[in-house]
Simulated assay, not measured.
Amino acid sequence: MIGFVIGVFAIAGMIKGTIGLGLPAVSMGLLTIFISPFQAATLLIVPSMVTNFWQLFAEGQVLKLVRRFWPLLLGIVVGSIWSIFPTLGHGEFQSEALLGGMLALYGLYGLFAKNMPNLAAHEKWLSPIMGYLGGALTVATGVVVIPVVPYLQSLHLKRDDLVQSLGLAFTTSTICLAVFLHQHPVENIPMDYKMSFIALLPALVGMWVGTKIRYRIPEQKFRKVFFCGLVIFGGYMVLHQLGLL
């Protein structure tokens, strides 16, 4: 089990180091092959928290972003408390199907989203809605991707602001997920924080390797293969849960 977890987080960290995203999605997708989504989410907490903090505080002006995006963050918190979706560990079939659907959507978005429309003019009312859906899907799948990532990219932020804004949203979602998992334990499924700490090292090593790979392999080619893989893998998870495979 330890070797499997180390391998998963090394791969996920490498992908994040190469293209700047994908650690939660890849980790959850691979881990749920052998363990439940609830248990996989508990292993994700420490590596996600550390890498998200790294991403958030790599540059300054964090308070400025908090003042701007507090409606989004509040929506994430509310969504994680009152989710409209079946939550992790409480309806396992739905959680795995939702996770597969999220991975497939994430892959399709990465493959086909070229020029995002500028939604900055609608930010005031869109932020709490996007935040709520992001928080609700976080406690349902263990992954915050859709719709938070496309939404923030649609605001046409400067590169550094976008990276930090994603880190802010990811950090908030990870904290909410950790609180949810602690308050809603599942019988006979332990919350293995020790294993989560063990997973941190291979994730960081993987990120370091990924940064080296970034300069050797064309990023666009790597991204295309990665997102195609997510579509195929996510689609398989959905069809498998529906009993079609």
Rank of each mutant, 00 (worst) to 15 (best):
M1I: 03
T171A: 15
L23M: 10
D161W: 06
L98A: 08
I81M: 15
K64G: 14
I217V: 15
L98C: 09
K224I: 09
T172R: 07
F34I: 10
G235P: 07
S48R: 06
L133H: 12
V225G: 12
A140E: 04
L152V: 07
F227W: 12
P117K: 05
Q183Y: 12
T141P: 07
N52I: 06
R68K: 14
P147S: 12
S27Y: 00
F233K: 03
G17F: 03
G243F: 08
K158C: 04
S36R: 06
I81W: 15
L200M: 05
P71M: 10
L63N: 04
G134L: 08
I2V: 13
A140Y: 01
F38P: 00
I217K: 10
V148G: 03
V231K: 05
F233H: 03
Y106N: 13
G89Y: 00
V145S: 15
V8E: 00
T174C: 05
M28Q: 13
I19A: 08
T171G: 09
L168R: 07
F9N: 02
D161A: 14
Q39H: 13
L56G: 12
T87V: 09
V179E: 09
V225R: 09
W82N: 04
I198L: 02
L244E: 08
M195E: 03
V225A: 10
D192R: 05
T18R: 10
C228K: 08
G206K: 01
L21N: 02
F38W: 05
G100D: 11
G110K: 04
C176A: 14
V205T: 07
N115I: 10
A121H: 15
H240Y: 11
F9C: 01
V163R: 15
L119G: 11
V163N: 11
G7P: 04
L152A: 08
I189S: 06
L63R: 14
V179L: 14
T171C: 13
I189C: 01
A104V: 06
H156Y: 12
L43S: 00
G75M: 01
D161V: 07
G79S: 04
W125Y: 13
W208P: 02
H182F: 12
F93R: 15
G7Y: 01
F57C: 02
M14N: 02
E123P: 09
E187Y: 10
N188W: 05
F85M: 01
S196A: 04
S165F: 01
G7R: 00
L137K: 05
I189P: 01
V8L: 00
L108Q: 11
G29A: 07
F85H: 09
G7L: 02
